Computed example of a mutant assay.
Amino acid sequence: MTTSSTQVIILYFSRGGATQRLADAIAEGVTAAGGEALLRTVNSDADAASARDMVIERDELTRCDALLLGSPTRFGHMASALQKFWESTSNDWLKGVLINKPGAVFTSTSSLHGGQETTLLSLALPLLHHGMLLTGVPYSQPSVHGRDGGGSPYGASFLNDRTSLTSSEQQTAFALGRRVCQIATACRHATIED
C-alpha cells in the first residue's frame, strides 16, 4: 500500500509524560519534513500518560516507512511494556517487515546520570535485529552541544527534572524526527537489496 506521505511511527511508553513530550517534539520534526507522524503506544498494566495515543497495531509495522522508539529509563534499560511488545514481534522479524527502514531512539530520565545512553543503546537492539537502518543525531546538529539538557549522537533525550524540554532538547528531538523522515522519504524512492 503506497501513501502520498512518508509514514513515521513514533512508538513510546510514558508514565509521567516526559517521554511523551519528546515524542511530540519528534513528531513536529517529522511533520516539518513533510511526513505523517503516527504517535503510538503499547499496552501496559500501568496507567500511562501515553494512553492519549492509539495502541500500535501489528500491521502498522508493515505499512510504516520508519519507526522511532522511546522509553523512560528503567535501570539503564527500556520499560518492560516496550520490551514485552518487541518480544511479541518474532513473526514480523521472520517476515522482515522492518528491513531497510530507518529507525531511531529516544529516552527520558529524572536524574543527570540516570542511564540515558545505556537506555538508548538497549532501545536500538530490537531495531537492529529487525534489520532497520539505525539513525542518530550527527554532531553537526548544534543542539547536541547544548549544556541545558539531554541529547547525544545516540538519540534524543530529556532530563525531566523540570516540566518542559529545554531549547536544546526540543531542537535535538525535532532534528531527529526531521532527519528520520527525510531518510525514510529517500528510501521510499530507492532500491535497497538485502
Rank of each mutant, 00 (worst) to 15 (best):
T3M: 08
S5W: 06
S5M: 14
T6A: 08
V8G: 01
V8L: 13
Y12I: 07
Q20E: 13
L22C: 13
A25L: 07
I26A: 04
I26C: 04
G29E: 12
G35N: 08
L38H: 06
R40H: 12
V42Q: 05
N43I: 05
S44T: 13
A49D: 11
D53Q: 14
D59G: 07
E60G: 06
E60C: 08
T62Y: 04
T62K: 06
R63Q: 13
R63K: 15
F75Y: 15
G76M: 09
G76C: 07
H77L: 08
H77M: 07
L82E: 02
F85Q: 02
V97D: 01
N100R: 15
P102Q: 01
F106D: 00
F106A: 03
S108M: 07
T109D: 09
S111H: 10
L112R: 15
Q116R: 13
T118L: 10
T119H: 04
S122N: 03
S122V: 01
L127K: 02
L133Y: 01
S140T: 12
P142W: 01
V144C: 05
H145A: 09
D148I: 08
G150N: 09
G151F: 00
P153R: 11
Y154M: 06
N160V: 00
N160E: 11
S167D: 13
E169W: 02
Q170C: 04
A173Q: 05
L176P: 01
H189W: 07
H189D: 14
I192P: 11
